[in-house]
C-alpha cells in the first residue's frame, strides 16, 4: 500500500499505531471514562469531532506561523486553538442538539487536556502531512481512540460482575487489562507493509 495514501494513513492511525494502546496518548480519559459503555461511546464521538476541528485549525495555523517565521510560538498557539475549538464545539452542540450536550456533560471541557488532541497536532506537523492527509490522520486517530475506549468499557462492564480480590480492584486491574488489549493490537503491526 502506498504509505502516503488516505487509506493507509487512516489505518495506521486507527489500528497499527493506535493512539491509546501503542502510543500512550489520552490515557487519562481512557482510564477515567471507560467504566460505562454508553459514556465511552459518546466521549469517543466528541473526541473524533474535536480532533477533526483542531487538526484543520492546526494545519492552517502552522502554515501561517511558517510564513511569519515564528515556529517557536507553535506550542502556545496549538494549545490555544485546541482550547477554543473545544469551546466552539461546546457552543455548537449546545445550540443544535441540547440532548447530546446534556449527555456529554463534563467530558466536553475535559477534552482540552486530552493529550491525544495536542499529540495529533504535533505529529501531523512533524510528519509534514498535507491537508487531506491531516484529515485522514485526525479521523483515524479519533476512530482508533473510540475503538479502544469502547472495547475497554465493554470489558470493564463485564468485569464488574466478576469476583476479584479487593487488592486487585480498581486501577491495577484496569491497567493489566489495557496491557492485554495493547498486546492484541500489536497483532496489527504487519498490515500494509
Amino acid at each position: 500500500m502506498n504509505p502516503d495514501s488516505f487509506a493507509f494513513i487512516f489505518l495506521q492511525a486507527c489500528l497499527i499505531n493506535n493512539f491509546v494502546l501503542s502510543m500512550f496518548l489520552g490515557i487519562c480519559p481512557f482510564l477515567g471514562v471507560s467504566g460505562k459503555f454508553q459514556t465511552a461511546s459518546r466521549m469517543g464521538l466528541a473526541v473524533i469531532f474535536v480532533m477533526l476541528v483542531s487538526s484543520t485549525c492546526a494545519f492552517w495555523i502552522n502554515e501561517l506561523l511558517e510564513m511569519l517565521d515564528a515556529e517557536y510560538l507553535r506550542l502556545i498557539c496549538y494549545i490555544a486553538v485546541i482550547a477554543s475549538a473545544v469551546q466552539l464545539v461546546e457552543m455548537f452542540i449546545k445550540k443544535f442538539s441540547p440532548a447530546l450536550f446534556k449527555a456529554l456533560g463534563i467530558f466536553l471541557p475535559l477534552i482540552t487536556t486530552n493529550c491525544a488532541i495536542l499529540g495529533l497536532a504535533l505529529f501531523q506537523t512533524q510528519r509534514a502531512y498535507n491537508f487531506v492527509q491531516c484529515l485522514a490522520f485526525a479521523l483515524g486517530a479519533g476512530v482508533g481512540f473510540t475503538i479502544a475506549l469502547v472495547i475497554m468499557a465493554g470489558l470493564r462492564e463485564e468485569l464488574d460482575l466478576a469476583d476479584v480480590p479487593s487488592v486487585v480492584k480498581g486501577a491495577a486491574l484496569t491497567l493489566v487489562l489495557a496491557g492485554i488489549l495493547s498486546l492484541a493490537f500489536m497483532g496489527f503491526a504487519g498490515i500494509g507493509t
Partner: peptide, 11 residues
C-alpha cells in the same frame, strides 16, 4: 514495548 508499560505500572 507498549504492553510492557501497562503491565509494569499495573504490577
Amino acid at each position: 514495548t507498549a504492553p510492557g508499560g501497562f503491565f509494569t505500572l499495573g504490577a
